[in-house]
Amino acid sequence: MSGRLDLDRETFDGIVEHARSDTPYEVCGLLATDDGERVTAHYPVPNSARSMTYYNMDPKSMLHAMNDMDDHGWELLAIYHSHTHTEAFPSPTDVELAFYPDAVYLIVSLQDAESPVLRAFNIVDGKITERVLTVEGEAAAAGPR
């Protein structure tokens, strides 16, 4: 498991656009990879909880995304969601519900709507480790390191 994650500009912009699309509610989605490092596909998944404080991926949409990954021989790279009013850091609920230890967890904060912050984490056995996140070779807007 690498200590960094490189995103292309299109994926970064897509995640931010998705986060803004349903403000003030949290959004969520999945990123797939075919090589364990770069994003191959982006799957926005409806937040069936329709909540400002947590997300629950719509089961049918999530299953469709996972089946599509399987059909293409891709793997789950990352799970993302937004925080509309708080920093881009895993909440206790995010940690409790981190069921995919091999996935990167991305959180985009819209706390400052004009300057969204995207951060990447590994969450394994309740332990949070931040990854270095870059967007097309430049460090992404990130919170405290």
Rank of each mutant, 00 (worst) to 15 (best):
S91C: 00
Y54W: 12
D68G: 11
E136T: 14
P44Y: 08
V27G: 01
E130Y: 02
R50T: 09
G126T: 11
T33G: 06
D35E: 08
V27E: 08
N67D: 12
A139N: 10
E136Y: 06
R20K: 15
G29L: 04
E130H: 06
I107F: 06
P24H: 13
P46Y: 02
T33F: 10
L30A: 06
M62H: 09
D102C: 03
I128L: 06
A88N: 12
S48C: 14
P59Y: 09
A32V: 06
R145H: 13
P44R: 05
V45F: 00
G73C: 12
H81E: 01
L110N: 01
A41H: 13
H81Q: 04
I79V: 15
E87I: 10
A142I: 10
P44L: 05
P144D: 07
V45G: 00
L31E: 05
Y54H: 14
H18K: 11
A142L: 08
A141W: 00
V95I: 15
L30S: 05
S61G: 05
G3M: 02
R38F: 04
T93H: 14
D102I: 00
L5R: 01
R50L: 13
M52V: 15
D34P: 00
L63W: 04
S115A: 13
E75L: 05
A139H: 11
L97N: 10
F99C: 00
L133R: 03
E114Q: 15
V39C: 03
V95T: 10
H72V: 04
N47I: 09
S51Y: 08
R50G: 00
S2P: 00
A41I: 02
P44S: 07
T33S: 15
V104N: 02
V135C: 11
E136I: 03
S61L: 03
A19E: 03
L5F: 02
A120S: 12
G36S: 07
G126V: 06
Y25D: 13
V108Y: 01
R145I: 00
V45Y: 04
G143M: 02
D34R: 15
S51E: 01
V124Q: 14
F99I: 01
V27N: 07
T40Y: 05
V135D: 06
I15L: 13
R38V: 03
P116A: 09
Y25I: 07
Q111T: 05
M1P: 02
L106Y: 04
D102G: 05
Y54L: 11
A103V: 12
P46K: 02
L106V: 04
S115D: 15
L97F: 07
P101H: 03
T11E: 06
C28L: 08
